[in-house]
Structures are given as C-alpha cells and as structure tokens.
C-alpha cells in the first residue's frame, strides 16, 4: 500500500485541508502571508499541496513551486516559516490519527520542496 493510500487518499485530503489551513491561518507567525488572498482559491491550492506531500498523483514541478512562492520570499518567507508549516502538517496528521512513520515520510516529501519554495 502506498503512503497516499495508507493516509486515506482523496477523502483524507478533503478532511485534512480544513484542519491544516485553519492551523496555518491561526498562527500569527505565518498568517500574514495569506492576507488578501481569497480563501476558496487558497483552499484549492492547499489541496494540491497536501496531495503532493501525501505522495498522491500530482503535477507539481520545481518551477511551479518557485513561481508560486517568489512574491512570498520577497516578503520575507524563510526557513523558519517552512519549519512552522511542516510542523502544522505533522500536527494535522497526528490529529487525524496517522502513524508516526507516515508522518515522517510526509515531512520528508515536504522537506524536498524546501529549496524550490525558498527560491534557492
């Protein structure tokens, strides 16, 4: 069984996206990056992100990651913020009862996007 299937696939992403995005929006260290962003559009993007880090079918490329975060890097997005997002991701999965080994795998996939996200 793949990581994506173990985590519950598409249905799990539907549940996880609200829990995850709510944690992020409630965190003053990172929520200013989402000011002025339409929530519906953002939820759709977060679903794409979760699909990727859950190891699901996705079309994410390094280039799209770089483009998507260029403005945020200009506004001060750094390693600390990426750490916070990865922590919220882990906490969301814990809340959903995922196994620690799977949470580690998800964190590793998210980690692999770090340099693209930070445009380095």
């Amino acid at each position: 069984m793949s990581l994506y299937e173990r985590l519950g696939g598409e249905a799990a992403i539907d549940t996880a996206v609200d829990l995850f995005y709510r944690r992020v929006l409630a965190d003053d260290r990172v929520n200013h990056f989402f000011d002025g962003v339409d929530m519906d559009a953002q939820i759709a993007k977060q679903k794409g992100f979760l699909t990727m880090v859950f190891g699901g079918p996705n079309n994410y490329t390094g280039a799209s990651m770089r483009d998507g975060h260029k403005d945020l890097v200009r506004r001060g997005l750094n390693d600390e913020h990426v750490d916070i997002i990865i922590t919220h991701l882990g906490d969301t999965l814990r809340e959903l009862g995922a196994a620690e080994a799977d949470i580690g795998e998800v964190a590793a996939i998210a980690e692999s996007a770090r340099n693209d996200v930070l445009n380095r």
Binding site: A44, T51, N58
Partner: peptide
Amino acid sequence: YSCKSGTCQT
C-alpha cells in the same frame, strides 16, 4: 487545468 488529480478544480 492544473493538477490533473481532482484537487485543484481548475
């Protein structure tokens, strides 16, 4: 289109 995996709704 974007994600082709049923999530982005594009």
